[in-house]
Amino acid sequence: MEKINFLKNLPLFSNLNEKEIKLILDFFNSYEKTFEKNNFIFEIGKPIDKIGIIISGEINIIKEDFWGNRSILNKFKTGEIFGEVFALSKVIPLNISVEASQNTRILFLDFKDFSMENSENPAEIIKFLSNIFKISLRKNILFTEKLEHITKKTVREKIISFLSSEAQKNNSNSFTIKFDRQELADYLFVERSALSRELGAMKKAGLIDYKKDFFTLIK
């Protein structure tokens, strides 16, 4: 019951009651698994045929190039989902992996043999899939924002673009970001040393103030 109470408050299960949620969990053969920090949840080149729901902890979606250089495409926290696009499309992600950024517990829904023809409750499944579609659309908007950040020419421009966007989301000039320094550098496609140097210069110039992951933008 505790798990159901947690799930029914998530966007993934919007407009679904407790009975319907249990039906979904049974239909997709749900199970839980715990991953220690830095362990891979999904690995590069392997099929993703499950949707993951983060019960506790955090994960990073990572992209690596031929030489092993990595960048963080996104970070997801408790209550968020991942893997849905690959699980539904059956496309193997050639250079995408998912890693636990802290000790993390995941609830998996298995889509390996999913077919609407196998369901005796299509209305509930359709509502569930509709929720997945809405979540995926929101993620696509966030990815478009990232493209805006990383296409800026200088490190400072990338930082300003990112921090301005976070201020707008929080409707405040003071806010907490979800990345540590290395993760932020990977997310913005910059070297960590260059990021730290530019943040220090911006702080000295009176443009920003920060302590760890808490930032204040100064006019």
Rank of each mutant, 00 (worst) to 15 (best):
M1L: 10
M1T: 08
E2Y: 10
I4L: 15
I4S: 00
I4A: 03
N9D: 14
N15K: 13
L16H: 01
L16V: 07
L16G: 04
E20D: 02
E20A: 07
I21A: 00
I21S: 08
K22G: 07
I24G: 01
I24H: 01
F27E: 10
N29H: 10
S30L: 11
S30I: 01
Y31D: 08
E32N: 05
F35V: 06
N39G: 08
I41L: 06
I41T: 03
F42Q: 06
E43L: 02
I44W: 03
G45P: 09
I48E: 04
D49E: 12
K50T: 08
G52E: 10
I53K: 01
G57T: 08
I59P: 00
I61S: 04
E64D: 03
F66M: 11
W67I: 12
N69I: 10
L73F: 02
L73D: 06
E84L: 09
V85T: 09
F86A: 08
S89K: 09
V91E: 15
V91H: 06
L94M: 13
L94F: 09
L94E: 15
I96F: 07
S97E: 11
S97K: 10
E99S: 05
A100K: 04
A100E: 09
A100M: 01
S101A: 14
Q102S: 00
N103Y: 05
N103R: 08
T104K: 04
F108Q: 05
D110W: 00
D110T: 04
S115H: 07
S115N: 15
E117N: 12
N118V: 01
N118E: 13
S119T: 15
N121A: 10
A123D: 14
E124T: 11
E124Y: 11
I126T: 13
I126N: 12
K127Q: 14
K127C: 01
K127G: 06
K127S: 10
F128T: 05
N131R: 10
I132Q: 04
F133L: 11
F133E: 12
K134Q: 13
L137W: 07
K139A: 03
N140S: 13
L142S: 13
F143L: 15
E145R: 07
L147N: 13
H149G: 02
H149R: 02
T151E: 12
T151V: 12
K152F: 01
K152D: 05
R156Q: 14
K158W: 00
I160H: 00
S164D: 14
S165D: 15
E166Q: 14
A167I: 10
K169D: 03
N170L: 06
N170K: 11
N170Q: 13
N171K: 15
N173H: 08
T176Q: 15
I177A: 06
R181F: 13
R181E: 12
R181T: 11
E183W: 06
E183L: 03
L184G: 09
L184T: 00
D186W: 04
Y187A: 07
L188R: 01
V190K: 05
R192I: 11
S193L: 11
A194S: 15
A194M: 12
S196A: 10
R197Y: 04
E198V: 13
G200W: 02
A201G: 04
A201L: 15
A201P: 04
A205D: 15
I208A: 03
I208T: 02
D209M: 07
K212T: 07
D213P: 05
D213C: 05
F214V: 14
F215Q: 02
T216H: 08
L217R: 07
I218E: 12
